[in-house]
Computed example of a mutant assay.
Amino acid sequence: MPFTNKTVFITGASRGIGKAIALKLATAGANIVIAAKSTEENPKLGGTIFSAAAEVEAAGGKALAVQVDIRQEDQIIAAVEKTVQTFGGIDILINNASAIQLTGTEQTETKRFDLMHSVNVRGTFLVTKHCIPLLKKSSNAHILTLSPPINIEPRWLGPHVAYTISKYNMSMMAIGWAQELQPFRIASNALWPKTTIDTAAVRNILGGEMLAKMSRTPQILADAAFYILSKSAATCTGNTFIDEAVFAAEGITDLSAYSVVPGANLYPDLFI
């Protein structure tokens, strides 16, 4: 049980990728902090911090459900303090919470631009800032940010400038933290999928049921995260990982079990 008594703080963990990572690490003995907004279930989204916490405990982990809007610094501070009171510290931070809107410049409302940058950039920065003092005390501290490799090809910038630059900002922070926190042996990496992942965003915003059937399950990122977080923080840092490459490094090439529909043609994710 490599994560026994390790405490993992996960933003946006009430559903989707964040919850999948929470459950994976819970089965390995981790304490999981479900730091997300949802306290009442939205039928289109599914899941709350409480339902996710119940699943974590059923999987064998200990859970703390904390309502946090990462746009609000006081809520971040309160969540970190409650984590310390409950589990004594933080060993791993997963920056998963993110907002998305794939629209051109004229079609992107100011409030949506502000939302993406408040959550993806400012929120990720502030959560990390307030977790660092605790990560410094861990024997193998990791920060893992769900963001893509920085690919400045115009085809990734032109269609949705606002979203793209917000996600690239997350990746630049991940790379920057690897350098900044190296003296403290705190690892910082980014992780991104090669193909689309069956999430609420895919079903409700991007492509609906049709795209979901051409996707992989969130479990692939959970398993990839497990491999990354199992590494030594002193040596595994400063990477922008693609999930398939993580598996290849482990000698795993058959990823068919992760397809939502067995044998389906998979749809490439953004920025790849």
Rank of each mutant, 00 (worst) to 15 (best):
T4Q: 13
V8A: 00
I10T: 10
T11W: 13
S14G: 06
G16F: 15
I21F: 09
L23A: 12
L23Q: 10
K24V: 07
L25H: 11
L25E: 03
G29S: 06
E41P: 01
N42R: 13
L45Y: 12
T48V: 14
T48E: 09
A54M: 01
E55D: 14
G61W: 03
Q67M: 06
K82M: 08
K82E: 11
T83Q: 04
I90W: 00
D91R: 02
L93Q: 07
N95Q: 15
N96K: 04
A99R: 01
E106L: 04
Q107K: 05
H130D: 03
H130G: 01
I132P: 06
L134I: 05
K136A: 11
L146V: 06
P149Q: 13
I150L: 15
E153N: 07
P154G: 00
P159R: 04
V161M: 09
V161W: 02
V161K: 00
V161R: 15
A174V: 03
Q179L: 14
Q179D: 15
E180V: 15
Q182A: 13
I186T: 00
N189G: 01
K194G: 03
K194W: 13
T195K: 12
T196P: 08
T196F: 08
T199F: 06
V202L: 15
L206G: 08
K213C: 03
M214G: 04
S215T: 08
P218W: 05
F226Q: 13
F226S: 13
Y227S: 05
L229I: 11
T235P: 03
F241V: 11
E244K: 05
A245V: 07
A245E: 05
V246Y: 03
I252P: 15
S259R: 06
P262N: 01
P268M: 01
